[in-house]
């Protein structure tokens, strides 16, 4: 059996309650259940997390670095979205 024929899953782990799940890597498995088990074996051998998400890699839609212009360029001319844009006297506190 050709291992590469198995679908690819992306693995996300929540290392601690209260934190977001973070992407840790990917693995091949025959289905979601198996991907969860493999993820445990591959990424959680030292209790690195309290919760696992597995997602079919083919279900992930990603932007590309070459999209950077159309995605982020318009942000460059909006410095006023940052708090530091507003000059206030030094004696003003807690703002």
């Amino acid at each position: 059996m050709n291992h590469n024929a198995l679908p690819l899953f992306e693995v996300f782990i929540r290392s601690k309650r209260g934190l977001d799940h973070r992407h840790v890597g990917s693995l091949h498995a025959q289905g979601h259940e198996q991907a969860l088990e493999y993820a445990r074996d591959v990424y959680l051998r030292r209790s690195e997390g309290v919760s696992i998400w597995v997602v079919n890699s083919s279900d992930i839609v990603a932007s590309q670095e070459s999209d950077v212009e159309q995605f982020y360029d318009p942000m460059d001319d909006k410095p006023y979205r940052h708090a530091t844009h507003y000059q206030l006297p030094d004696e003003v506190k807690n703002l």
Binding site: Y80, A83, H85, Y86, V92, L95
Partner: peptide
């Protein structure tokens, strides 16, 4: 939020 408050104060 910090931006919101600072722009208002300004």
């Amino acid at each position: 939020e910090s931006f919101h408050q600072r722009q208002g104060y300004q």
